[in-house]
Nucleic acid binder design. Sequence first.
DNA 1: TATGAATGAGGATTCATTCAT
DNA 2: CATGAATGAATCCTCATTCAT
Lengths: 238, 238, 238, 238
Amino acid sequence: MPKLPARERATPRATSARPQPAAGSRGKRAAVRTAPKSRNAKSAATHAAIIDAALDEFAARGFAATRLDDVARRAGVAKGTIYVHFRDKETLFEELVRTALGPLLRGLEETPVADVPLRAFVEGLADHFVKEILGTRRKHIVRLIVTEGARFPSLAQIYYREVIKRAMVVVRGAVERAIARGEIEGDTLQRFPQLFVAPGILALVWDMLFARFEPLDAGALMRAQVDLVFAAIGKRRK
Amino acid sequence: MPKLPARERATPRATSARPQPAAGSRGKRAAVRTAPKSRNAKSAATHAAIIDAALDEFAARGFAATRLDDVARRAGVAKGTIYVHFRDKETLFEELVRTALGPLLRGLEETPVADVPLRAFVEGLADHFVKEILGTRRKHIVRLIVTEGARFPSLAQIYYREVIKRAMVVVRGAVERAIARGEIEGDTLQRFPQLFVAPGILALVWDMLFARFEPLDAGALMRAQVDLVFAAIGKRRK
Amino acid sequence: MPKLPARERATPRATSARPQPAAGSRGKRAAVRTAPKSRNAKSAATHAAIIDAALDEFAARGFAATRLDDVARRAGVAKGTIYVHFRDKETLFEELVRTALGPLLRGLEETPVADVPLRAFVEGLADHFVKEILGTRRKHIVRLIVTEGARFPSLAQIYYREVIKRAMVVVRGAVERAIARGEIEGDTLQRFPQLFVAPGILALVWDMLFARFEPLDAGALMRAQVDLVFAAIGKRRK
Amino acid sequence: MPKLPARERATPRATSARPQPAAGSRGKRAAVRTAPKSRNAKSAATHAAIIDAALDEFAARGFAATRLDDVARRAGVAKGTIYVHFRDKETLFEELVRTALGPLLRGLEETPVADVPLRAFVEGLADHFVKEILGTRRKHIVRLIVTEGARFPSLAQIYYREVIKRAMVVVRGAVERAIARGEIEGDTLQRFPQLFVAPGILALVWDMLFARFEPLDAGALMRAQVDLVFAAIGKRRK
DNA sequence: TATGAATGAGGATTCATTCAT
DNA sequence: CATGAATGAATCCTCATTCAT
């Protein structure tokens, strides 16, 4: 009956070691595994429906302006049901964003790294970014990171640790091997692997804000950047 | 960006580099210009203090999570005073962001365009972006456009029309003259003038989210991009 | 009409002669009529308690000066609960007044019209007005119509359509039949059926304003008017 | 600087012996009298303009919903100016209503009472009511008494004492003389002089609420009532 | 006197969260 | 698990009133 002091509710609690309780115990995949119990399956479906609806709402309105009421309506459940699945609004938001990590990471991990020429590797990356992120609802996740990340330090940290840093390691590795193989010269790309994504981020932001005035072809932009980069530092054999 | 103790900034700060805080340039009717312009001057100062405080608060928390109560406290005025100067929260926000247009535009307009070599021109732009925007509180304005723009279509439109489009026209013009002068080749930059800002936007976003884990030198990043671009398409005879 | 200590009426009073408080007659969908109709029943009781409390408050203070806070306290619910049942203050007010239509109408419809002598009919009406309206809390509804109606055109319209016009039709019909039967002469009452209620309205207004200085017996006043009318236009048989 | 406890502000203070300070010292007439001092004249004009504007606003919105801001705007003065002339909103309202007493009373006092036949006397009254009250802006005053009087006991009292009681004395006197002269019979009119005004009040209320659906001719209604009354109790020999 | 910017208590409304069913 | 009515803290906004000019 007594409510929390409120102030404590409203502030993003970056501190609490949210234990991700009984991890994956009701993730979509869990449902697939435990086919027998119809109750679990239905519950998992509900869980997924909420996350799904939440993505739409959060993406459209931002964290603060999103009403759980709307999420519930969109998910086709009662408001209270959300609290059966998530501790609170913040947890829902964070879990939603965190849930989307997997798919993003998979792209990285599955990209063949070994002895692919750097250019091919980088083109693969750009392609993946455009097709698998900008071209799908995953785009909203990246949007949310960009627009809400500053208010959710724990999310920013997770993304830094799980996505950004890893991606930079992978790209730097590829760059180093390319240098070793004599494909490129200079240290620009080792220092700033971000140069490969910069156009992608710009395209994302552009899309959020200016698409209706002037569309921007993210793929073409990223390809142009790759062209520039390799025209600049690719060793001109021949 | 934790909330300042507020009391520490309780007095209207007429200090900040805000452009028109001096005169009664904003008074309802520019007044009859009474001798000591006392009332108008104070009113204008209040107006400015509110905008100033609002910038801090909105930047730190985003539109929805900002309490006008805090804005008032930070501006050193009573809650109601905000409503003497702005119809409502939204109007305050929009006017705040719109007010910042001037300074951003001035950078564009004052940049010597004429017969500067493209590289010098572009380096000037990058420099300006880093020093005058990322290096000042104006950075917050760009942040707000990025994070809130999607929810304020009219603002996005204004920025597209007044800043983005104009900037693109200017850059494209410079690029064309450079081509005409034989400085560069190819049409990449005509098609994607955005390539020059992309690293700047990425740096801004990076700064919002990941600065505390790994700082990113925006200036160096932008310079690296300029280097790449001119290494790639600058005519390299001579 | 001083505000009750509120705490004294903290519990939803299902007692008062409110017509449909019993069943789930108002529940969103009349429900599937679950066995003990527990939730719906409680909800309906809450709804009724709010309307009930609102009547008291609005009657005592008028629309604008009434605080929903007080309504909530008097109804024994939390402030927010009001908004579960009514969109806003205005809706609550209108629904409250509209809700009271039924009982007022019933008086009209149940009055035997057929072949009663006009005088008996009219005395019945006056009696009903005094006993069932001026003598009950329904009086407040008529007060509210009189004092707030001008600011709520939709209410005035509803009352005109549902009460006034219908009542005038009924009375005119009775008058015409009385003429046909040779009970009365002249067309005054056909043209101004309002003459029968005028003393009632005056009594209502008098009661609001001057009762404490000089009480006015509404019943006697209305009877006097009826006497006058029939002394004037009743055919003096004999 | 500190504000009143507010609760004390909002409640109609019927108690305080508002001293009606230096009565009439700035009423319109005062202005006419003190022609020389232009400052007084202007001040009186301002005073009158405010009262005038206030009548419109209060009549249109009721006491609580009227904003002094609007009154000021309509009067063509600054908000603060109102407080130069009136202690507060309530005082303005009460003074406004009280100010209108004079004209209403004058009607009573100037009506020749002496030996006019009752019917002529009463027709004169009705005529006066229709022409001088319902037909002018004074109608708004009566409206305000009806709609706000319950919340302003001191006003109700004043009106009872100054208008209602006096009028009843006058009418009763006329009735008694008429009886003495053998014009009418019975004691109905002595007991209920209100019967003469009832149609007027009904017409006023009707006008506030239902005029747009079905206009009501107040004059005709009142005349019909007078006809009825005299048809009923006028001695009809001769 | 007149002005109108400033004040701040008050009140309507929202919405995350709880909990009895 | 699911529901949705109930809760009440939080916040926007209004407006009577004050006061320095």
